[in-house]
């Protein structure tokens, strides 16, 4: 059963993403409200994929990506950035830090599910 960590400060978006991911067979959603909360969840749960926002309080998504990539235990977990920042330079920066994919909001559910499926272990 793949565990998907959704890191998002907006409850509306958390609920919407969780709703969408329910359609990924056998998946389980773990929710985190910011980067620090996400690191806590990573230390206590086995995570197969991270969906993270960029603009979050306490610790933003880019900082989370760099910390995950520098940690030997989590460095191979795929990360998809889901953000309102739609400029090309934002995307380049996120991918350069180590994010695997970049999805600007407002999200298209089918696109999100397709992307999630492509990064989950077969």
């Amino acid at each position: 059963m793949p565990n998907i960590l959704v890191v998002e400060d907006s409850p509306t978006m958390r609920q919407l993403i969780s709703f969408a991911i329910k359609r990924v067979p056998n998946s389980r959603v773990i929710e985190a409200t910011d980067g620090v909360d996400a690191l806590k969840k990573l230390s206590s749960e086995k995570v197969d994929l991270i969906l993270a926002d960029i603009n979050m309080p306490v610790m933003d998504g880019l900082k989370l990506v760099s910390l995950v990539r520098s940690n030997a235990s989590y460095k191979d977990i795929p990360i998809i950035i889901v953000t309102t920042e739609g400029a090309e330079e934002d995307k380049k920066r996120a991918l350069a830090i180590g994010a695997n994919a970049y999805l600007p909001k407002p999200i298209q559910t089918q696109e999100l599910i397709k992307l999630v499926n492509s990064y989950l272990p077969a």
Partner: peptide
């Protein structure tokens, strides 16, 4: 949140 995230 709705206007930002869902409407864009």
């Amino acid at each position: 949140e709705i206007v930002i995230n869902l409407i864009g």
